[in-house]
Amino acid sequence: MRRMMEVEVLLALPRDARSVRIRLAEGCTAADAAAASGLPLGGIEGYAVFGERVRADTPLRDGDRLELLRPLAMDPKEARRRRATRAK
Rank of each mutant, 00 (worst) to 15 (best):
C28G: 12
A87E: 12
A34P: 08
R80P: 01
L41V: 11
L41K: 12
R81F: 08
M5A: 05
I44M: 00
S19C: 12
T85N: 03
R23V: 05
L60T: 04
R82C: 03
L11C: 10
L39D: 07
A30C: 15
A73G: 10
R55K: 15
D75Y: 08
P40F: 11
A73W: 03
A34L: 11
D57T: 14
L66R: 02
L66W: 02
L24A: 03
E26F: 04
L72Y: 07
A73M: 08
G46D: 01
A48G: 02
F50N: 06
A87N: 07
R70I: 10
K77A: 15
R53A: 14
R2Q: 02
V20R: 11
M74K: 14
R15D: 15
D62I: 05
T29N: 06
I44N: 01
T85C: 00
R2K: 06
R61I: 01
D57F: 12
A30E: 01
R3L: 13
D75I: 07
A31H: 13
A56I: 08
P76V: 11
M74C: 09
V7E: 03
D75V: 06
A79H: 02
G27E: 03
G63Y: 08
R61M: 10
R86S: 10
R18E: 12
L60R: 07
F50L: 03
V54S: 06
D16K: 14
M4Q: 13
R82A: 13
L69S: 04
A79I: 01
S37G: 11
V20S: 11
E6R: 15
G51E: 06
A17W: 05
G27W: 05
V54K: 06
A36C: 04
L10K: 15
E45I: 14
E6M: 02
R2C: 00
T85P: 00
P76C: 13
A25H: 09
L24H: 03
K77H: 13
V9L: 06
R23Q: 13
A73L: 13
A12F: 04
V49W: 00
R70L: 15
M5G: 03
I44E: 01
M4F: 10
P71H: 05
R55M: 12
R86G: 02
L66N: 00
M4R: 13
G46V: 00
P76W: 13
K88N: 11
Y47V: 00
P76S: 13
A33H: 01
L60Q: 03
V20I: 12
M4N: 10
R80Y: 09
G51D: 06
A12G: 10
G42S: 10
E52S: 12
V9K: 00
A84L: 15
L11P: 01
A30F: 09
G27P: 02
K77N: 12
M5C: 07
L69T: 02
P76E: 14
R83N: 09
V9C: 05
V7S: 05
T58D: 03
S37D: 08
R3N: 15
L39G: 08
M74V: 14
L11R: 12
L24P: 01
E52A: 14
E6I: 04
T58S: 11
D75E: 14
R61K: 15
R82E: 13
R3P: 08
T29W: 05
R80M: 04
L66V: 07
D57S: 15
A73I: 04
G27C: 04
S37N: 11
E6F: 00
V7C: 05
